[in-house]
Design a protein around this nucleic acid. Structure first.
Length: 106
DNA sequence: ATAGTGACAAATG
DNA sequence: TCATTTGCCACTA
Protein backbone atom coordinates (compact mmCIF):
# COMPACT_ATOMS: atom_id res chain seq x y z
CA UNK A 1 0.00 0.00 0.00
CA UNK A 2 1.14 3.51 -0.71
CA UNK A 3 3.12 5.18 2.02
CA UNK A 4 4.51 8.65 2.58
CA UNK A 5 7.37 7.72 0.31
CA UNK A 6 4.95 6.93 -2.45
CA UNK A 7 3.29 10.26 -2.00
CA UNK A 8 6.63 12.00 -2.10
CA UNK A 9 7.45 10.09 -5.26
CA UNK A 10 4.13 11.00 -6.81
CA UNK A 11 4.53 14.67 -6.02
CA UNK A 12 8.17 14.65 -7.09
CA UNK A 13 7.25 13.03 -10.36
CA UNK A 14 4.42 15.45 -11.03
CA UNK A 15 6.65 18.39 -10.20
CA UNK A 16 9.15 16.98 -12.65
CA UNK A 17 6.69 17.21 -15.49
CA UNK A 18 7.98 20.04 -17.70
CA UNK A 19 5.68 22.97 -18.31
CA UNK A 20 3.71 22.55 -21.46
CA UNK A 21 3.53 18.78 -20.97
CA UNK A 22 1.09 16.50 -19.20
CA UNK A 23 1.09 12.93 -17.90
CA UNK A 24 -1.65 10.44 -17.19
CA UNK A 25 -2.57 9.06 -13.77
CA UNK A 26 -1.66 5.61 -14.90
CA UNK A 27 1.75 6.70 -16.12
CA UNK A 28 2.54 8.52 -12.93
CA UNK A 29 1.34 5.58 -10.88
CA UNK A 30 3.38 3.11 -12.89
CA UNK A 31 6.43 5.34 -12.60
CA UNK A 32 6.28 5.60 -8.82
CA UNK A 33 4.86 2.17 -8.10
CA UNK A 34 1.28 2.95 -7.14
CA UNK A 35 -2.04 2.53 -8.90
CA UNK A 36 -3.87 5.18 -10.87
CA UNK A 37 -6.51 5.52 -8.18
CA UNK A 38 -3.84 6.28 -5.62
CA UNK A 39 -2.49 9.03 -7.82
CA UNK A 40 -5.95 10.54 -8.13
CA UNK A 41 -6.29 10.38 -4.40
CA UNK A 42 -2.89 11.96 -3.92
CA UNK A 43 -3.83 14.79 -6.24
CA UNK A 44 -7.11 15.35 -4.43
CA UNK A 45 -5.30 15.96 -1.17
CA UNK A 46 -2.36 17.82 -2.67
CA UNK A 47 -2.13 21.43 -1.68
CA UNK A 48 0.11 24.27 -2.74
CA UNK A 49 3.21 24.20 -0.57
CA UNK A 50 4.15 27.65 -1.68
CA UNK A 51 7.74 26.61 -2.30
CA UNK A 52 7.06 23.39 -4.15
CA UNK A 53 3.54 23.49 -5.54
CA UNK A 54 2.34 20.32 -7.20
CA UNK A 55 1.21 21.06 -10.77
CA UNK A 56 -1.73 18.69 -10.49
CA UNK A 57 -3.22 20.29 -13.58
CA UNK A 58 -0.55 18.51 -15.60
CA UNK A 59 -2.04 15.16 -14.64
CA UNK A 60 -4.88 14.02 -16.87
CA UNK A 61 -6.63 10.78 -17.73
CA UNK A 62 -4.98 8.20 -19.99
CA UNK A 63 -7.05 9.54 -22.86
CA UNK A 64 -6.10 13.11 -22.07
CA UNK A 65 -9.51 13.87 -20.70
CA UNK A 66 -9.76 16.06 -17.61
CA UNK A 67 -11.37 13.47 -15.34
CA UNK A 68 -11.70 16.19 -12.78
CA UNK A 69 -14.51 17.55 -14.90
CA UNK A 70 -17.04 15.00 -13.72
CA UNK A 71 -16.40 16.01 -10.15
CA UNK A 72 -16.29 19.75 -10.48
CA UNK A 73 -16.91 21.96 -13.48
CA UNK A 74 -15.08 24.80 -11.78
CA UNK A 75 -12.01 22.71 -11.14
CA UNK A 76 -12.08 21.66 -14.75
CA UNK A 77 -12.12 25.29 -15.86
CA UNK A 78 -9.25 26.00 -13.48
CA UNK A 79 -7.16 23.13 -14.77
CA UNK A 80 -7.83 24.14 -18.33
CA UNK A 81 -6.78 27.69 -17.59
CA UNK A 82 -3.57 26.56 -15.94
CA UNK A 83 -2.78 24.27 -18.85
CA UNK A 84 -3.48 26.88 -21.46
CA UNK A 85 -1.24 29.24 -19.52
CA UNK A 86 1.53 26.72 -20.26
CA UNK A 87 0.69 26.51 -23.94
CA UNK A 88 -1.14 23.24 -23.54
CA UNK A 89 -4.18 23.04 -25.77
CA UNK A 90 -7.34 21.70 -24.19
CA UNK A 91 -10.02 20.74 -26.69
CA UNK A 92 -13.53 21.94 -26.09
CA UNK A 93 -14.49 18.44 -25.07
CA UNK A 94 -11.90 18.67 -22.31
CA UNK A 95 -9.24 16.51 -23.91
CA UNK A 96 -5.52 17.19 -24.22
CA UNK A 97 -3.93 15.94 -27.47
CA UNK A 98 -1.38 13.15 -27.09
CA UNK A 99 1.34 15.41 -28.40
CA UNK A 100 1.29 17.20 -25.07
CA UNK A 101 1.93 14.04 -23.11
CA UNK A 102 5.42 13.70 -21.66
CA UNK A 103 7.57 10.88 -22.99
CA UNK A 104 6.39 8.33 -20.47
CA UNK A 105 2.98 8.43 -22.06
CA UNK A 106 0.91 5.31 -22.49
C1' DA B 1 -17.03 -4.73 9.81
C1' DT B 2 -19.49 -3.97 5.36
C1' DA B 3 -20.66 -1.16 1.57
C1' DG B 4 -20.24 2.64 -1.30
C1' DT B 5 -17.34 5.97 -3.61
C1' DG B 6 -13.55 8.39 -6.13
C1' DA B 7 -9.45 13.71 -10.00
C1' DC B 8 -8.21 5.81 -12.89
C1' DA B 9 -7.61 2.23 -16.55
C1' DA B 10 -7.83 -1.77 -19.34
C1' DA B 11 -10.69 -5.50 -20.85
C1' DT B 12 -15.21 -7.27 -22.22
C1' DG B 13 -19.87 -7.65 -24.00
C1' DT C 1 -19.72 3.22 -29.66
C1' DC C 2 -21.50 2.70 -25.22
C1' DA C 3 -22.11 0.22 -20.88
C1' DT C 4 -20.51 -2.97 -17.62
C1' DT C 5 -16.97 -5.39 -14.98
C1' DT C 6 -12.79 -5.94 -12.55
C1' DG C 7 -8.54 -4.55 -10.33
C1' DC C 8 -6.68 -1.18 -7.76
C1' DC C 9 -5.74 1.66 -2.98
C1' DA C 10 -7.59 4.59 0.46
C1' DC C 11 -11.44 7.11 2.47
C1' DT C 12 -16.12 7.82 4.41
C1' DA C 13 -20.74 6.59 6.10
Amino acid sequence: MPTESDFAAIYAFVRAIPAGRVASYGDVGAAVGVTARTVGWAMSVAVDDGENPVPWHRVVGSDGYLRIARRSAELKALQQSLLEAESVIVAENGCVPREFFASYEA
